[in-house]
Design a protein around this nucleic acid. Structure first.
Length: 602
RNA sequence: GCUCCUGUAGCUCAAUGGACAGAGCAGCAGCCUUCUAAGCUGUUGGUUGUGGGUUCGAAUCCCGCCAGGGGCACCA
């Protein structure tokens, strides 16, 4: 935001130090941590330490010398354009901005740039974010939700930061779990399908759980029960074989049930406002993955031990590592069928060669860390330069207060159930706090609030931490939550609506004495561009989540303490109205990056 | 055995080499004839798991240890 001023001042500090033979270290600018005034600071500890090491100072303690340098630099700078005053305090040089000038600049650019305020310049790099990889023939639970909101937020952040961004989803639509559902559905449930898209998706999960119970060996099984179970098992194996061979009837059954799961999945993405650009299915990379195995064998990267053993890559050995790190990866079963890893190699090849991605981000839970290390290492052995920029964004798994989620034990928090509960709770709060809200608007408002609370509770925890999903905490609307931030937007909107009736926005000079609340709010608003860049570089939505809360807090404090419509003069009122409009814009932009939208009223 | 992650206030979490380690929840005390109280203000609460090291400076970097969780050749 203040690059020009900072650069000019840096140049002057450099020449001052050069003239006085002070070995200046890199200048790192930070905003001054004490609120009330507004500016940036840099310290001279590193410089003083460098000087001490070169034997130049007179045996002064580093802190003392740093303070002396800061004072000398301060004196040499004198008056600077855009800087109202400067000071040297405990080794730091503090520069305070001319408030009127910068306030006007921040507010004007937020209003002028609108939804683009905070966006970065084009990076000329294409990045693919792969997230939301639920299995079909199951139902979408809160763990899938964490994955999806994390991926969507990350995609919005990197896109906003200036990367060309492709959103990819990779549902698992084959494997033993899928076949298990097909078997039980055909045998016991055919023709009993619920009509509702979510009821039908959840029903498949119920079938899976029951089928698994039928196929699991019990303690104290009678001979008749054992025979029954073994017969079921044989049927399932037979079905798998037929599917693999491409049996038309089995494939049709598979397509039909698969479509039900995908319909539910698409509806959940719609509820979350997620728009996937590219769909990859495991079933589509199954065949191509086998070609890669042939290539790897031909090039001597993989070893074929069939039929006694599988096809393997001795990664550590190929890399000349002596300690176990990547270990040995199996890339093809001895019977010639492919594995998860095989398919990920094929998928990566598609990403690199067909979509020409420069960076590839995989949002997948942290239990798969070794899998991705192996995959990336093999891609590197294959010679893909982009393998260096493949990144596994690992996140901690979500469990329930009762323990780990387990579909078989009926212990899952399904997304749709949480969603319904979120809306019900939001409606209850609306009925209590805003009873005059028209009935027709309530559902939409409740949807935004409920989803905002849920999204924020997920994104406000760093991704590498495991999480216990407690509905009461996730759907809390008080304190550091999504609705708290949305409420700031609503309050801003409320002022602007009233102002609209008396003319709307007009230019303002900000040449009055700003309150500390106004300065703090403007300071926070000015941070959005650098926050976006940091979050995109670190692949961490948490950075934005933490920021937008600080911004909302600054707005709430301002709102409480500073009158806008009742301001002491017309020029102050005009300035504050512009500030409110700009703050609403910045809040909205930051919330967007978290996949959250704010209602006009709540 | 090897490897990855986590350990910060009663609880849930921030702070990735800089100024007094900060929020929310819970607790306590105030604030609605004033732009939405889903809010604001004040306050209680810390040997950053532990022992060393590096540094002018460490929650942060390095080494050891302790505790919890994940992963390690034909599951995904």
């Amino acid at each position: 935001m203040f690059k020009q001023e900072t650069q000019a001042i840096e140049a002057q500090i450099q020449s001052f130090c050069a003239a006085n033979e002070i070995p200046l270290a890199e200048l790192k600018w930070k905003s001054i941590p004490f609120s009330g005034e507004w500016g940036i600071s840099t310290s001279f500890f590193t410089t003083a330490a460098l000087e001490a090491r070169s034997g130049k100072n007179q045996g002064l303690p580093v802190a003392t010398r740093a303070q002396a340098i800061a004072e000398a630099v301060k004196n040499s700078l004198g008056q600077q354009p855009g800087i109202s005053r400067s000071e040297a305090v405990s080794g730091y040089l503090n520069l305070y901005f001319s408030t009127a000038q910068v306030a006007r600049r921040v507010v004007d650019s937020a209003l002028a740039q609108g939804a683009r305020f905070g966006a970065g310049h084009p990076k000329n790099e294409r990045v693919m974010v792969e997230y939301s990889q639920p299995n079909t023939h199951h139902s979408f639970h809160i763990g899938h939700y964490r994955n999806t909101i994390l991926g969507e937020s990350l995609a919005r952040i990197v896109q906003f930061a200036g990367f060309e961004t492709i959103r990819a989803s990779y549902p698992g639509d084959l494997g033993l779990g899928v076949i298990t559902v097909l078997w039980a559905y055909e045998k016991f449930y055919r023709g009993q399908e619920p009509a509702d898209v979510h009821a039908r998706g959840q029903w498949l999960l119920k079938i899976y759980v029951e089928a698994t119970q039928l196929l699991t060996k019990k303690e104290n099984e009678t001979p008749a029960e054992t025979a029954q179970r073994e017969q079921y098992e044989a049927e399932r194996r037979d079905l798998y074989r037929k599917w693999d061979a491409g049996d038309p009837a089995v494939r049709a059954l598979w397509q039909e049930t698969r479509a039900w799961s995908l319909a539910e999945f698409r509806d959940i993405l719609r509820m979350m406002d997620v728009k996937i650009d590219e769909w990859f299915f495991e079933s589509e990379v199954d065949e191509p993955s086998k070609k890669i195995v042939d290539e790897l064998i031909a090039r001597g990267i993989a070893e074929d031990t069939r039929p006694e053993g599988p096809v393997i890559v001795k990664i550590d050995e190929k890399l000349g590592l002596t300690k176990e790190k990547f270990r040995v990866a199996v890339i093809l079963r001895s019977d010639g069928t492919s594995l998860y890893l095989t398919k990920d190699l094929a998928l990566a090849q598609v990403k690199f060669e067909k979509f020409h991605v420069d960076r590839s981000i995989y949002v997948v839970d942290n239990r798969q860390s070794l899998h991705f290390q192996q995959a990336f290492a093999i891609l590197k052995l294959m010679g893909f330069a982009q393998a260096e920029k493949c990144f596994h964004l690992a996140y901690g798994f979500v469990s329930l207060p009762e323990g780990a989620m387990s579909a078989r034990r009926g212990r899952v928090a399904l997304f749709k159930e949480v969603y319904d509960e979120a809306i019900a709770r939001a409606l209850a709060v609306i009925a209590e706090k805003n009873p005059s809200l028209p009935a027709t608007e309530r559902e939409g408002v409740a949807q935004k609030i409920g989803m905002g609370a849920l999204a924020y509770s997920m994104l406000a925890v760093d991704n590498n931490k495991d999480m216990v999903f407690d509905v009461n905490e996730a759907l809390s609307f008080d304190g550091r939550t999504g609705p708290y931030i949305q409420n700031a937007v609503v309050r801003a909107n409320s002022i602007l609506k009233k102002a609209q009736q008396s003319g709307g926005l007009s230019p303002a000079a900000f040449d009055y004495t700003l309150t500390m609340h106004e300065i703090e709010l403007i300071e926070q608003m000015s941070h959005l561009p650098k926050v976006v860049q940091q979050a995109a570089e670190e692949y961490r939505p948490l950075v934005v989540a933490a920021y937008v809360y600080e911004l909302a807090t600054a707005f709430h404090s301002f709102y409480h303490a500073v009158p806008v419509l009742q301001a002491e003069s017309e020029s102050v009122k005009a300035a504050r109205l512009r500030l409110v409009a700009a703050a609403k814009q910045v809040l909205t932009n930051a919330l967007y990056l978290l996949g959250i939208s704010a209602p006009d009223v709540m």
